[in-house]
Structures are given as structure tokens and as C-alpha cells.
Design a protein around this nucleic acid. Structure first.
Lengths: 224, 224
DNA sequence: CAACTCTCAACTGTTGACAGTTGACACGTG
DNA sequence: CACGTGTCAACTGTCAACAGTTGAGAGTTG
């Protein structure tokens, strides 16, 4: 382990297990715990200043999110995703998000959609003015779409998948410069939603995510 | 190939937690543990002849499957699903399965699909000959479709959703007589898949699952 | 008599110790 | 020298006991 691990305060009001989940998830996603690394229960519990019980519970919960892989009698590992698994995860994401887009397109109340349209217009203006290659609202767009679908089961599943994809992509942390393309595609999807064309919205979003997958795969093959 | 996994008698070599998960899942799905019921750690662990540690792990794992609801400092409950949640779950199922159908329709290797066609033909013949109102292959059809999609992440997500739907429908255990309609719709979906028409396959499957949802909802409102 | 407070039993959260398993290293054998 | 074997440290799985929280009911007060 990248053992620096300050015996973090871990202070708050939730249970130790809850807080451990949060701390470990953060460490896994930001690379403090590298893919392939083994998570030693004794070391980590001592580093967190708790006993093995709550830590084990945290590890099991992370395993159910797919951020940790448990091997009986061997322990917990941070999974290392290959191109095949990244593709599987993207296909799953496509399944979830395209259906969310379909649900939103068939929604009666359009206020949420209108807000999203405005947000994307603002982002477009910002991107045109200053050459900021960053497109911080990418995750926002997908997150908002899920939220508008108003299906908590769907949202939770999508969140789980997104976390795993983040982990799979974590090695290539350098956000690509697909900002403009992504924004353009987002606006196209949104236009179809506004028009109430569920099929077209789903089709465009599927296309967009396939582009994103291609991008992610190319970055995966070319490690820094 | 050490673990060619002979399905051990479940009392054999898995950990206590593993076995507890299996036992409890069974009890929840077959109604031994009714929705709304509270799961007392002490009582259950004594009934299973183990200590609270492994049982707690089992409960957390079931919670991650959605078959148990954990309330901090209050304990574990078997969730009681209302019409709204059942609808959410079905929408999630639709998202997953329609995408699976799409993937299968775009598959090159058609041998698996051909097998499924034959299986449905057999089922149809059987259903015509004897007036057996049961259509045992309903779950088989959906399960096979998922398997053919060859995406383990997708399959696992679908399995989790199916388990929750089973729980939500468990009160109305009497399988409805939608056998013929279901089979007809299955064959229509499959025909589209054979034709390689992903859009149409997805559309028909979405329709089929919406019918199934309507049926489930009507049974939910009218308790025996 | 309603509402509020206090007390307590039951239960979950947590801990530290014990038991069984695994993988690796050293050793002996062909 | 390759290979099987024995041994062992490290680690996970499990247990029983301790600590903190919750909800309910007895008791009290206006």
C-alpha cells in the first residue's frame, strides 16, 4: 500500500464502517490504492484507527459496488480492468443511460429539461469564449439526465457503473480534449429529448457513449 | 482447473457467510421471511448455528442485492415494495434486457440464437398439445437472452433486478395465465433478433415487459 | 388526563482474541 | 538441478464479550 495513510481523524457521526467506505472509495478512485493492490485488513484497520470488523464490512460493501474484488481466504484486491471489462461496463452504462434518456423524453414536466438546455448553452458559450479545453459539466450532464429520469433504482445502478468506469479509466487521468465533441453530442441528444423523440435521443446517446468508449480504450492502450 | 465447482451440498466448504446468504435469500424469496419483517441478528444467528459476525456479513451482502434494507442502529428489514418501486424495477429491467436483446441481434455467431428458437418452438408445441397453462421457460427465455449477450456486468445487474422483482411479486405467487401471450411475444422478439433488427427487437421486448409490468401491477393491487 | 421526562431492556456497533487456511520458503530426494 | 515435501509466518474467517444507541413504557407534572 502507498502507506502514507495518516491515521485520519475519521470523525463524524456515521458508523465507522460508513466512514471507512467513503475513505477507501476515495483512495481507490484517486489512485492512492492502485489497481492490483492487495488490501491487508490488519494494516488498513490500524491505519484508520478501527478494528477489523467495521473494515471488513466496508470492504464487502465496496465489493458490491465493484470497486474491490474479494477472493475467499485470500483477501481483497483493487480490480484491474482490461479493455474487455471496460467495454462491458460501457455497454452496461449505455443500457442504463439510453433508457433514462428515453424516460426523460417521454416526460410531461419539461422544467428540468429546460434547465439542462440552458446549462448546456452556457457551457457552449464559455467554451467558445475562452479556450478552456476543460468541459467540467460532462459528468453533470449524465448525472442530471439520470436524475430527471426519476428512477432511484436506475440511478443507483448507473452510479455504481460510473464508479467502476472511473476506476478503469483512472490510470489515464488526463482528461482528453473531447470537450467540444462531447458538448456537441450532448446538445444533439438534448434536442431530441426536447422534441420528445425517445428513439432518436436513445440512438444519439448510444452513439455518443460509443465515441466515449473508443476514446477511453485508446487511452487505455497508450499508458503514459 | 482445480475448482471445476461441483455444486457442493451447500454445507461443505464455503464460508458461513456464503451459506447464510444462500439460506436467507431462499427464505426471503419463498416468503419464509415476510416483507416488512425485522431480522434480529441474535435470533437468526442462533437459528443458523453461527455467530453474529458472518451473519452480519450475509445481511450486508443481501442489502447490496436489494433483498434487505438496513437502517443504522435499527437493524435489517425485508423491504416491502409498492407499485411505484415495482415500476421502477421493471423500467430498470427493461433498460438492461432491451440492450441485451440489441447486443444479441448484432451478434455474428448465431448458434445460441438458433438454440433458443428451437426451444421456443418446442414450448409452443407443448403448450398447444396439452393445455398446461404453465410456461416454465419464461424465466429461461430472459435468462438465456442475457447469457447470449455475453456481458457479465450486464448479467449480474439483471440478476440483481430479477431477484428484487421476484420479491416484490412474491405476495402474488400465483403465476398468471399469461403463458400464451408471453410465448407469442417472446417469439416475436426472437424473430426480430434473427432478422438482425436490433431496434425492432428492443421495441418488442420493451412492449412485452410493459405488458408483464401491467400484469404484475394488477396482481399487486388485488391481494389474494 | 395529556404530555413530557426518565429509566431500562433489547439490540446493533465494535472490539480483541482464537482457529483454520494459504502461499512461500527451506529442505530433502530423484 | 529440477521437483516434490514439510514447515511456518501471515492473513482471513469466526467467535464471544463489551459499549453505545434506540424505542417503549413507567412514572411524573402541569
Amino acid at each position: 500500500m502507498s502507506s502514507a495513510s495518516v491515521p485520519a481523524p475519521l470523525g463524524g457521526e456515521a458508523t465507522y464502517a460508513d466512514r471507512s467506505v467513503a475513505v477507501l472509495r476515495e483512495m481507490i478512485l484517486d489512485g492512492s490504492l492502485a489497481p492490483g493492490e492487495r488490501l491487508n485488513e490488519v494494516h488498513i484497520s490500524q491505519a484508520l484507527g478501527i478494528s477489523r470488523g467495521p473494515l471488513r464490512e466496508a470492504l464487502r460493501r465496496l465489493a458490491s459496488e465493484g470497486l474491490v474484488r474479494l477472493v475467499p481466504h485470500r483477501g481483497a484486491f483493487v480490480p484491474a480492468f482490461g479493455p474487455g471489462q471496460l467495454t462491458e461496463l460501457y455497454e452496461l452504462r449505455i443500457a442504463l443511460e439510453t433508457h433514462a434518456a428515453r424516460l426523460v423524453a417521454e416526460l410531461d414536466d419539461r422544467t428540468g429539461v429546460d434547465d439542462l438546455v440552458r446549462a448546456l448553452d452556457d457551457a457552449a458559450a464559455l467554451l467558445d469564449r475562452q479556450d478552456s479545453s476543460a468541459y467540467p459539466t460532462d459528468q453533470d450532464f449524465h448525472g442530471t439526465l439520470l436524475r430527471l429520469a426519476a428512477n432511484s433504482a436506475l440511478s443507483e445502478a448507473a452510479a455504481s457503473v460510473s464508479a467502476r468506469i472511473s476506476l478503469a479509466r483512472s490510470r489515464s487521468a488526463s482528461q482528453p480534449v473531447r470537450a467540444r465533441e462531447a458538448l456537441t453530442e450532448h446538445r444533439a441528444v438534448l434536442a431530441a429529448i426536447v422534441a420528445g423523440d425517445a428513439d432518436e435521443a436513445a440512438r444519439l446517446l448510444r452513439l455518443h457513449l460509443h465515441h466515449s468508449l473508443e476514446n477511453a480504450l485508446s487511452l487505455l492502450d497508450a499508458p503514459a
